[in-house]
């Protein structure tokens, strides 16, 4: 019996049981813009960059189970335009000053901006006041760049079993906090080797003592745009995932 498929922008996409629309697309080599998704974690569905039109209705493709016969649109002017708007919302929400960011060239927010041709934040910048936390000997936290994807929250809780990070506040005041009464990372058991130190898609969690160590031109997204890195995002078995 042949594998079940759905249609994505006119192309037949096969899928395995339990896969989301997005996972199936990535597995088939079709790039899907995303920020809160990570192949080693359960889908989160918060950044909304992967929004598609599924059977005529907008839906988050990372949380929509693949099903035979779905008609899915992703690379259309209307959807790409909405994705650009979402990126612009993130760009005005935080303080994203790329020229001074060590993550520049490796940052997924930036790479998606390039991919989708975002030339301006468009909206009025909110310029929030978010102090940095340099209390940890090995790691700097620069909250200015946080896009609230919760990957560090999830990695620290699910993989490191430390729960170093959590979210506090609500709405536009929502922000990342660390697990200490002082609020300082230096007062937690966080370590540079933690999974949570490896997953930030932007430049919040930065190792100290090695800023800008990769020369411009050789950074992750310098040579090839993020859409050509699709192999890196293909689904893998998620540790501890329910069958």
């Amino acid at each position: 019996m042949s594998e079940p498929t759905f249609t994505l922008d006119g192309r037949e996409i096969p899928f395995a049981a339990g896969q989301s629309v997005m996972q199936a697309a990535l597995a088939a080599g079709v790039f899907v813009p995303h920020l809160c998704y990570h192949p080693e974690f359960r889908p989160h569905g918060s950044c909304k960059l992967c929004t598609m039109k599924i059977n005529g209705r907008h839906a988050t493709s990372c949380t929509t189970p693949a099903a035979a016969g779905l008609e899915v649109e992703s690379d259309t002017p209307e959807i790409q335009d909405k994705r650009r708007t979402l990126l612009q919302m993130l760009l005005v929400e935080g303080n994203h000053f790329c020229p001074s960011c060590e993550k520049s060239g490796e940052c997924k927010l930036q790479a998606l901006g390039y991919e989708l041709g975002v030339l301006t934040p468009h909206f009025n910048l909110l310029y929030p006041d978010r102090p940095v936390d340099a209390s940890h000997p090995d790691v700097l936290l620069d909250f200015n760049r946080c896009i609230l994807c919760e990957l560090c929250v999830r990695a620290s809780a699910e993989v490191d079993k430390k729960s170093v990070f959590a979210l506090a506040g609500r709405g536009i005041r929502k922000h990342l906090i660390v697990n200490a009464e002082s609020g300082k990372l230096g007062d937690t058991d966080f370590a540079l080797t933690d999974k949570a130190a490896q997953v930030c898609p932007v430049g919040v969690i930065l190792p100290k003592k090695c800023g800008f160590c990769v020369p411009i031109g050789q950074r992750r997204f310098d040579a090839a745009p993020i859409s050509q890195h699709v192999d890196e995002f293909k689904p893998v078995a998620i540790p501890g995932e329910r069958a």
Binding site: K48, L167, R170, G171, I172, K174
Partner: peptide, 21 residues
């Protein structure tokens, strides 16, 4: 709405504030 947005998803967290502004 801007006050009550939970802040989970990008469009509501930022969009309601942009609308308010």
């Amino acid at each position: 709405f801007a006050h009550e947005s939970c802040g989970f998803c990008t469009p509501c967290r930022v969009g309601t504030t942009l609308l308010k502004n």
